[in-house]
């Protein structure tokens, strides 16, 4: 790209934490990035808008029918679409409602019937509605990985996102394995690239970047039960945390 590419940010059903994470650069890195791109739409930081976009970065999952048109409109305006953050990538924790029917009541209690709370039965990744070119996974997405993705796209190179599991990064960091302190973890099957910050802080990996190819979920369930002392139902629930929309059994029980 010879001219500075126009980059826009959009949010759907999400906490907007990934946008916050982006502005968290707040240092030389982010300013340096601005030398190479033009940010044309960014709700968290500005208000001007433009028609054609080189790179549309979309945060949040698809949970309402009305969001469909908006997603399609963005796709039509954008040369490249990046789904960034777990909600856009896997539908994230929004999809935890997908296998339940009483989710509104559970969340909103007696206000559950208010019309503005209506949403689809299932939260889905935005790739369910539009073609997504690249993913920046994670909850929140890693700002350094995002920089790397943009850097690659500036050169017309497909971004390199690691495909190996979080265990690889924990071991490289010499982080004490959660299982060695009697805890649980899903790092064995979770996509890496984040640098494994959670286990290094004593927090189990929740697979917020989704599962790796050929993820051995049966073995994971067994390990959660046999090694971490989970009940069978808790082990099953654990697998849903960030990937409920992708698991085969997301339909109502």
């Amino acid at each position: 790209m010879t001219q500075k590419p126009k980059v826009a940010f959009f949010d759907f059903s999400s906490c907007e934490g990934c946008q916050i994470e982006l502005t968290n650069f707040g240092d030389a890195d982010f300013l340096e990035l601005l030398n190479h791109i033009d940010i044309v739409e960014f709700r968290e930081a500005m208000s001007e808008k433009t028609d054609d976009i080189d790179i549309a970065c979309i945060e949040g999952s698809f949970t309402r029918e009305s969001e469909k048109d908006r997603l399609i409109a963005i796709r039509n305006r954008a040369k490249i679409v990046i789904a960034y953050g777990a909600c856009a990538h896997t539908a994230g924790i929004n999809a935890l409602k997908n296998h339940t029917t009483d989710f509104k009541k559970a969340v909103y209690g007696q206000d559950a019937d208010q019309p503005h709370l209506n949403s689809n039965d299932k939260a889905l990744p935005i790739s369910h509605v539009i073609k997504v070119d690249y993913f920046a996974p994670g909850c929140p997405m890693s700002k350094y990985e995002f920089l790397n993705i943009v850097s690659h796209l500036l050169h017309g190179k497909e971004p390199v996102i690691p495909t190996y599991p979080v265990c690889v990064e924990c071991k490289r960091n010499e982080t004490i394995c959660r299982y060695d302190v009697g805890d649980h973890c899903m790092g064995q099957v979770a996509m890496a690239g984040c640098g494994a910050p959670c286990p290094s802080q004593g927090i189990p990996c929740e697979a917020c970047r989704g599962f790796c190819e050929q993820a051995n979920l049966t073995a994971l369930e067994n390990t959660l039960i046999n090694k971490a002392g989970f009940s069978a139902s808790r082990a099953k629930d654990k697998l849903r945390m960030f990937t409920n929309a992708l698991l085969p059994d997301t339909s109502n029980p």
């Binding site: 599991p165 265990c167 690889v168 099957v189 790796c212 051995n216 073995a219 390990t223």
Partner: peptide
């Protein structure tokens, strides 16, 4: 059968 292909053994 229970291998995660996680690479911990190699790493």
């Amino acid at each position: 059968k229970d291998c995660f292909s996680c690479g911990s053994c190699n790493t």
